[in-house]
Design a protein around this nucleic acid. Sequence first.
DNA 1: CTGTTAGCGCCTTCAA
DNA 2: TTGAAGGCGCTAACAG
Lengths: 364, 364
Amino acid sequence: MAASTLTEVARLAGVSPATASRVLNGSARTPGKDIAERVRQAAESLGYIPNAQAQGLAKSSSGLIGLIVHDIADPYFAAIARGVQEAAREQRRMVLLATTGGGPAEEKEAVAAFAARRADSIVIAGSRSCRDEDRDGNAELAAELDRYCRNGGRVAVVGHPVVGATAPDGYHVVKVPNQELAARLATELAGGWDGDFVIVGGPEGLLTSDDRVRGFQEGLERAGRRRAEVLRSAFNRSGGYDAGLELAARIKAAQSAEGGAAASKLCIFAVNDVMAIGAAAALRSEGLRIPRDAAIAGFDDIETLRDFRPALSTVRLPLEDIGRLATRATGRHAAGGDSEAAGGAPAGDITGEVTLRRSTEAAA
Amino acid sequence: MAASTLTEVARLAGVSPATASRVLNGSARTPGKDIAERVRQAAESLGYIPNAQAQGLAKSSSGLIGLIVHDIADPYFAAIARGVQEAAREQRRMVLLATTGGGPAEEKEAVAAFAARRADSIVIAGSRSCRDEDRDGNAELAAELDRYCRNGGRVAVVGHPVVGATAPDGYHVVKVPNQELAARLATELAGGWDGDFVIVGGPEGLLTSDDRVRGFQEGLERAGRRRAEVLRSAFNRSGGYDAGLELAARIKAAQSAEGGAAASKLCIFAVNDVMAIGAAAALRSEGLRIPRDAAIAGFDDIETLRDFRPALSTVRLPLEDIGRLATRATGRHAAGGDSEAAGGAPAGDITGEVTLRRSTEAAA
DNA sequence: CTGTTAGCGCCTTCAA
DNA sequence: TTGAAGGCGCTAACAG
């Protein structure tokens, strides 16, 4: 009742298993046309499906690519996953999914699990952290990755290298110019905004968040503005909401102090779209309107959020491309820096685009 | 340079591979404490990672669960995927992801690929179709699933059984009461709405869409209202947008004909949230406001869309639970209908909740 | 309680 | 070109 095997196919076709194998997979070239046809028919009639585990064991390569994300339901990761999936399909590989909630300890476990399954490569998405509490976790993750690479595995990390990881062979980083883009966003915003800026950031030590905060401050400085205060909260909608409540209180206080809405208005930069949406919801729940009482901008340009009103100013990141590129970087043929040397722009060059929309319009 | 093997560990510990295996995995109980400790140390010092492929080959069971979705970046599927992922983790299994774009042909390929990898079970999410063009595809998919089940695989389908599939052992359907919930939505809506209803549905033959359309009509009827006209378009945001444009034109025509906004207003039911958002965007782009000029409701209650304004009336579906349940239904210990017989409510009973929000408020 | 012996299903040298 | 033999790493029956 178990699935039929290559041996059975061979027997039915009256050939040796070796021959059957040669026909059904493309080792050299398909042997004698008549023989080949017989084998194929036998396979067909038995409903033969090759056992990938056995193939993998014999060839020691599995056709698997492991993807590690914080949370697959987060639209940011879902978009990256789509890119990974597409690229994997091109390479005729399957993707193994692991969600970790963001801790390096879980990430380490995921890497080990992938290694056990002999995944050919691993893509790690999700912000790295350099907080003290994550020190040990990071070190263990780095060690695990190192071992994986030494055993011939390929790794691509989105954003930042794993903290403390040496860069062994097969270790790629898909860099995302968070800092530069945040700076550009700040500059453009400063051009049309008189009031002060506030940043709603994630916890200190989250590299992606830190980059965006730093970049935004730089951009402000470049535009001759004073640095923005930074509020810290969770790197998700609820964090944004909390910060939003705090800000709403301040705004209302300022408004009543100055006796009118003519007060200098605040422009809020949340380090990702989801936080921005949370903050906006909080302001709204306190009776404030955007952009009348405050402006707000995010980062990522999450597709599902594009219909949000007022339309959110943000930085468009090509999330799918990021996933695709990371995956391709770990492909069999992507080992060397050839594409970089030959084609001009390195294949891993991600770029984004500042996108100003209504949420930061100066007009009341 | 390749990862170290069990044999190496055994040799280093001075025991037989069998013993090492017994220690490192839990077959009976761990042998002699001293021996066990030695083996564990040897494994540790070699950085031993068991080869899951080899284990799978030997035990003929892989610890893999395959998940088939239309598009992982679609928040509906992403939410289900999260549930699947969680349940898989509980069962110490890993999830293999396949995205198909919705065609039965691709789904069949995915099933075959999972079968090749010897996935223990498969979860299929995404609407079934009974359109003519999908007839052959459905048949092939059904055949493939059948074969998979006969070989001992377990399958759970979300929503509807695969068209034409006999129900072999190990084949589960997680039913979603789309029709009933849509009916309830219609009834509740009818209670607070005087005007006419229109349905924005997906293409005819998409079972989920059809169920929701049918249910909504039923609910209307039950409430003593006349049936709604049904507009057909793509089962995604852009389909909703197209339909929205069409409706906007009608609404404006009606308004100017009656010379005022006092005309009987339209309530639009889009068969899923994403379509509803698309339709809402279209209305807005034509200068119409919700719920002033028309009401609108969706289905699913997608999390990312909850901050949309005006808040969307919809039917909350426990997407994560659905994924979890589907996964559990295919677990090793979920074979029989025991849970159903023993625990009262069948484990696969999904329920939803009508959630009325501002988008369908009658007040102008 | 431990070691020995066969495979799991396939691929890949090697001879023929 | 085709077949025979060995092994990928592990587990599961036996035997000791």
